[in-house]
Amino acid sequence: MSQIVRGVIARSKNAPVEVTDIVIPDPGPGEAVVQVQACGVCHTDLHYREGGINDEFPFLLGHEAAGIVEAVGEGVTDVEPGDFVILNWRAVCGSCRACRKGKPWYCFSTFNAAQPMTLTDGTALTPALGIGAFAEKTLVHAGQCTKVDPSVSPAAAGLLGCGVMAGLGAAINTGGVSRGDSVAVIGCGGVGNAAIAGAKLAGATTVIAVDIDERKLEWATGFGATHTVNAAKEDAVERVQELTDGFGADVVIDAVGRPETWKQAFYARDLAGTVVLVGVPTPDMKLEMPLIDFFSRGGSLKSSWYGDCLPSRDFPYLVELYQQGRLDLDAFVTETIALGEVEDAFAKMHHGDVLRSVVVF
């Protein structure tokens, strides 16, 4: 029997979000209903509200979440009621060309729940990233549920569902940072600082944080940056080169996603270094550069999708690092808030006042 719960929706472009009643159907084949315990406020949710993703309003926002499986549908075997899970938006299919090549993190046919969640008048909701977790309960595909140790804090664990995983994975999975490497990270919000933490975990000896906000640079130092560069006061490319014996960094991660920051990343890398784009550009952004500059350098230019993660592999591993005290997920949680405070959290995020606000139920 369907349930009515409270959730946060974006009804139209740029309109303030609102808390309203949401209808959650019983799980069908391959689906699960999850009682949400915590959900981070991610910049992607703001993009949805602003119409920057698509125009399929109304949206049920929220996707960086952890909670307890309440019910599962026919054929679900990987999780069961009572399991503590982190929700993910890359439930791999196992049969597309990427999965068959042994690269499921590039899966081209990821799963979402087949049934819609709705408003009480029957209007279908579009769940953010196929999750929609700014709600007391949500309906997802069972493959979007990754079981982890239940002793972890839900507020910390949920952040692995998007931003923290994206940044950590950009360094470790996409960038391939290894022992002794030099790494520069441009943009030190939640994703960028997670990339710094990932570089530290991977054994980088020089980790350079680049931003225009001294507060964010201070946060970056706490996550493992060995040097900071305020790009509003000095040339970021020149400074990164100075800090790497004139060569440039082995790996440069653009966690902003703008043409100017990508160019900084390109020119701040070593001759055969790697550039990783994990910041999300808008569709109107264009890049213009001399083609000879690409020809005259080796290395690689990569985009990182969700940190090129495989949730079933990466989430339990990162939770274990958290429990060992080697990955401070709690440090990403700036504040915990109630469901009705999401709009205020968007404003704080927009002004750079928080790494993450987390809705706790």
Rank of each mutant, 00 (worst) to 15 (best):
W219H: 07
K348N: 08
G158W: 00
K103F: 00
A199G: 08
A331E: 10
F59G: 01
T261E: 03
V280M: 10
I131N: 01
G102I: 06
Q241V: 10
T123L: 02
T336G: 09
G169R: 03
E260H: 04
F294S: 11
A133M: 05
R239G: 03
G298F: 00
C162G: 12
V354E: 07
T226Y: 05
V76D: 04
M165Y: 08
S12F: 10
L327W: 11
K200W: 15
A133R: 01
L159G: 03
I22P: 05
P283L: 02
P316H: 00
T120R: 14
V69F: 02
D284L: 11
V79E: 03
A195F: 00
C107D: 01
L339F: 09
A166D: 13
R49T: 02
A255S: 10
F247A: 14
A225Q: 00
P154Q: 04
L168F: 07
G352S: 05
A236V: 06
V256S: 03
A231Q: 05
Q324A: 11
G340H: 10
C188M: 11
L271W: 14
D211C: 07
A66Y: 12
V319R: 05
Y48N: 09
L160W: 00
V360E: 14
C188Q: 04
R97H: 11
A209V: 01
G246Y: 01
L159K: 12
A128Q: 07
A249Q: 01
E335V: 02
G248D: 11
S109G: 14
K101H: 15
T226Q: 00
I337C: 03
A135W: 01
R49L: 07
D78C: 14
G52W: 15
V358W: 04
L301T: 14
A209L: 07
A166F: 02
L119P: 09
V5R: 11
H63N: 10
S12L: 14
